[in-house]
Design a protein around this nucleic acid. Structure first.
Lengths: 199, 199
DNA sequence: CGAAAATTTGACATGACTCAACTGGAGTGG
DNA sequence: CCACTCCAGTTGAGTCATGTCAAATTTTCG
């Protein structure tokens, strides 16, 4: 149960002593969420950092027309939360819910702050994780600004082949910022092109 | 000259000892860039973290049609670099240049790594800074996905009124992901609306 | 099996882009 | 001091990609 978290630390070059690991394991709490269950709902204050052990989540906003816009997916080994709401204690504007049955570990902000005091190495761990997050977000932003939709789609598939099959096309369309209809047409076009090549 | 940096540390709750401050001040190097001068150019490897003391920079990509797409502006008190290129040592795909005469402090990656060892508090400082960066990027992403262009524009002006006047409209258009023509028409519409209200 | 959801397809509307021309101000040099 | 150039900004006309609305089809799952 703790392997995934320990691995995540190790991947960032952070190795903790048995005592530190114990402390962390007594601080985090395990929780299960059902498919479609909210982990965080618009209007609530985000209280926990959440580490995903198993399952799949999506973070999204809903615009005034009722359209959903997916900000990110979270699979095994990801942290999900609304940092702004968590840090400032203000109501969140996003929703996070589960696309699959999902198992997580959670820590409250105050418990996390204490952990940062007792296990200073965690600062390095999250600094490096956040660097990765910034790199991903910047890359996605660059793509959204400069690349045609088709390229964004196929690039995304290339980068996340393991979760592509677990996510419906309308979810992917929402992530890309287009309608499901447009995505469908886009896929048909590439289908037709590859067929004409095979003739 | 060091006040701005010291303040930035303090804003994140990081207070350094005189010895640590000395170490930092001997590690960073001061540099001036002219207007239009590159700080980082596509194809080069990003070697430095750069802290802006004075001036204004833009980070952008150029697509295959030669169009520029601005990823972020950097004003006084900002850090600019391509984290991906810096960390992995790979050639960057972005350009960073100066919209004004700009003065900066720079540290190489290796020097920075040593600083992280000697001044562990810097982990906390950059962790918190990166959190802010993630929050901003996520907010911008959410807006780009879900809000009409006009709202993105006026929201941006509200958030950065101090730098809006220093940036030409075509730069702003590039940041918003639209053409200068579209921005011009958008501005005219709101002008006309406010005029009809004043009648 | 049958209901609900997802995907696809078609017809049409529309917002943004492209290309081109025009305006007006800043800076330069005769 | 004026003519000239350069560049940002604006405006217009036509095009095109994507969205909207509606319906048909396929898939999923209780």
């Amino acid at each position: 149960m703790w392997d995934l978290l320990t691995n995540s630390f190790a991947q960032q070059g952070v190795i903790l002593s048995p005592g530190e690991q114990d402390l962390i394991q007594t601080t985090f709490t395990f929780k299960k969420f059902r498919k479609h269950q909210y982990i965080l709902q618009e209007g609530d204050v985000c209280r926990y950092k959440t580490f995903i052990l198993k399952g799949l989540t999506r973070g999204y906003t809903v615009d005034e027309k009722g359209q959903e816009h997916i900000l990110l997916f979270g699979a095994e080994g990801s942290w999900v939360e609304d940092l702004h709401s968590l840090n400032k204690g203000v109501p969140t504007e996003i929703n996070i819910d589960c696309l699959e049955e999902t198992e997580v570990l959670q820590v409250s902000k105050s418990a996390m702050d204490m952990l940062f005091e007792s296990v200073p190495q965690l600062n390095k761990y999250f600094r490096l994780l956040l660097q990765d997050a910034v790199v991903s977000l910047a890359q996605r932003m660059a793509y959204n600004l400069s690349k045609p939709v088709a390229e964004r789609y196929y690039n995304w598939i290339d980068r996340f082949p393991h979760i592509e099959r677990r996510i419906s096309n309308q979810q992917i369309a929402s992530y890309l910022g287009i309608t499901p209809q447009s995505l469908s047409r886009l896929r048909r076009q590439t289908r037709e092109q590859s067929q004409s090549l095979n003739k």
